[in-house]
Simulated scan of single mutants.
Amino acid sequence: MPFLGDEQLSRAGSIAKEAGATAETGSLTLVYRPPFDWHAMLTYLAARATPSVEAVTAEGGGRYWRSLELHGHRGYIGVGPPGANTLAIEISEPLLPALIPLLARVRRLFDLDADPQPIAAHLAGDPVLAPLVARRPGLRVAGAADGFELALRAVLGQQVSVRGASTLAGRLALLVAEPPAVAPPSPGARPAPPTPPPVTPHRPPEATA
């Protein structure tokens, strides 16, 4: 996917400020089709969270936090809890210029473009799956915020447990990453990732011929 140009990124930043951005963060909502098993999604992400990069907190219905870099902008996001068919997202100010591609990544991460009802109706036609689908409505397939991270986790997890892969990913992040330009909110203000501050893994430079 090609990067957005400077003009498009600038326009995205203006949209963010008009949509409720403050000097430090922007607060937006993303629409999804119900139902949404938020607890199951957070449980999955919490079990695979990379230390110092991702965190899941239980307060206030549960939130997912992570740092990331997008088009040269480093910061953090906080996602959740869901409302009436909407999912709240908090975006640190340095990431606002990359708002459009950022929101696309959040939608993929939380599978917000899925339509659960026709999916459930199709799976209900299977006698084995039907009772499972009825018992757990709104399950979604968690995606990834970054393709390089996903590939890295696949390699790290080849011969170890899920927890072991997360530990290795966290150690690697601390070795090669830089902290976000703005730290997440302090624990006294609202739920936030644990210290040390989240860091963002960087892709290695592309090889040249």
Rank of each mutant, 00 (worst) to 15 (best):
P101G: 05
P194A: 13
A58S: 15
R105F: 00
A21W: 06
A151E: 14
S10P: 04
R33I: 02
L99D: 02
P198V: 06
A88L: 11
P198A: 05
P2R: 14
I100D: 11
A58F: 04
P35Q: 10
F36T: 04
A181I: 10
S27F: 07
P131Q: 08
P196D: 09
A16H: 04
A88T: 13
E59H: 10
G5W: 04
A104L: 14
F36P: 03
L68S: 03
P82A: 07
P35F: 06
Y64N: 00
A23W: 11
S166Q: 03
L175K: 13
R66V: 05
S92Q: 05
H122G: 13
S27M: 09
L132M: 12
H71F: 11
D111P: 01
T50H: 01
L87H: 02
S10T: 15
G72L: 10
P101D: 13
A58G: 00
P51L: 00
V162M: 09
V182H: 04
S161K: 09
I89E: 00
A192I: 04
I89L: 09
S52K: 03
R11D: 12
M1K: 13
R171S: 06
P101C: 12
V79I: 15
R74K: 12
E149G: 08
S186E: 13
L132D: 11
A46E: 13
T167M: 13
P116I: 07
R108L: 07
L109Q: 12
P193I: 02
T43K: 12
V133G: 04
A189K: 12
T167V: 14
V182W: 00
P204E: 04
E93C: 11
A192M: 04
A145P: 02
P137L: 08
A98Q: 01
L152R: 12
L152H: 05
P179L: 02
R171A: 09
R135D: 14
P194Y: 06
L150F: 01
L168F: 03
L9E: 06
E178T: 13
W65M: 05
P201D: 04
I91F: 06
V128T: 15
F148M: 13
A98I: 06
V133H: 05
R33P: 02
V162F: 00
A47D: 15
F36K: 05
V176T: 14
L42S: 01
V199Y: 01
L109M: 11
P201R: 01
L132I: 14
W38Q: 10
L129R: 14
P185H: 05
A130I: 10
W65Y: 13
H73M: 08
R163A: 15
I119K: 10
S92M: 08
A181E: 06
P193M: 10
G13N: 08
A49Q: 03
G143N: 07
V160H: 08
Y44D: 14
R163I: 11
P197G: 05
R107L: 00
M41F: 11
L172P: 00
Q158M: 12
L109G: 02
R136I: 02
F3P: 13
L68K: 00
H39Q: 15
P197W: 02
V182S: 11
L129Y: 01
L28F: 15
P35D: 15
L103W: 00
K17Y: 12
H122Y: 11
G138E: 02
R48Q: 15
R105Q: 12
Y32V: 08
P116R: 03
A16S: 09
D126A: 00
R203M: 09
I77F: 01
P127Q: 11
